[in-house]
Design a binder for these strands. Sequence first.
DNA 1: TAAAATTCCATGATATCCCATAAAATGGCA
DNA 2: TGCCATTTTATGGGATATCATGGAATTTTA
Lengths: 166, 166
Amino acid sequence: MIRRFRGESLHKVDAKGRVSVPAAFRRVLEEGDPEFTGGSYPNFVVVYGGVRGNCLEGYTISSITKVDKLISKLARFSRDREILERFINTQSTYMQLDENGRIVLSYRLKEKIGIRDEAIFAGMGEKFQIWEPKNYQNEVDALDSAFKNLSEDENPFLKLDQLQDL
Amino acid sequence: MIRRFRGESLHKVDAKGRVSVPAAFRRVLEEGDPEFTGGSYPNFVVVYGGVRGNCLEGYTISSITKVDKLISKLARFSRDREILERFINTQSTYMQLDENGRIVLSYRLKEKIGIRDEAIFAGMGEKFQIWEPKNYQNEVDALDSAFKNLSEDENPFLKLDQLQDL
DNA sequence: TAAAATTCCATGATATCCCATAAAATGGCA
DNA sequence: TGCCATTTTATGGGATATCATGGAATTTTA
């Protein structure tokens, strides 16, 4: 089975910025790090810039490697490549779980997404997101109402099955 | 794992031009120098000419070697090759980290990119850039607005997914 | 030999490691 | 199926190592 990031949970962020990564997510990070062995702790990548400036996004090594390889196919000095590198490499950082399954959010990262002493982790399949709780609730509400306002043929659930037919 | 240059950080440049290279970048430089051993300090290459005259670009030995090989494929006396060699070979220099993980930016280099007493290091995957902070902010803003003004089918993120299909 | 560059040492700040504990989840097993 | 033993999690505190930076001493070089 290829595990995916699923579920949401709330965690304390202590004075040093340490926060536990949900245990279920750790399993996915371990599977997604080719160099992970029982004795070590998995590496992964956190992207903090990009389209959504209000949350952090965590990627396994193998899924970010896929993205990196695609970017490397673009012409070395092209504007497109520059934009993507800026969003995906410049505005990201490697992280490693510590022995207790935690990571450290630097002051800069906390500030970026408005986190003080609590964080919400949300599974998004191939990636997960880290949100400040209030912002997260707003995001959920916004998505909810956006969905309700869609017409029948805009319904993404229905589009899913159309994709399958191709 | 093949580490890539990720993240951005601000560092002081002292009167002698010394500046710390971000610790995370040092690891990449070490991995990218075939001759690096535990006891030594990694060599790498800084390009100061190139497409953008307003920042320096740092390459690991192995990634600059890739670029060199690409250039070598061009016809020996072609204008293209001459131009590229001028930018990548002539306008570049070898550097080595000192024991504290610093490099020295000569007066000439600092002047070239307008640096006084602070520098921003930005990870760009296979290379990293060194910027004067204000110029860097301008560049980021310019990229941001360039990105925002793109039409749907010009979006480099979406182009990535199309690449995936190839 | 004076200026410039390089090496060596010092230090405060930050990040990392290591241990401790309580709560929760898991797993027998009668 | 109810209870206890064991493991896993979530969280905190203190010790230690690394990092960023400055200054002095030494070497190079022009």
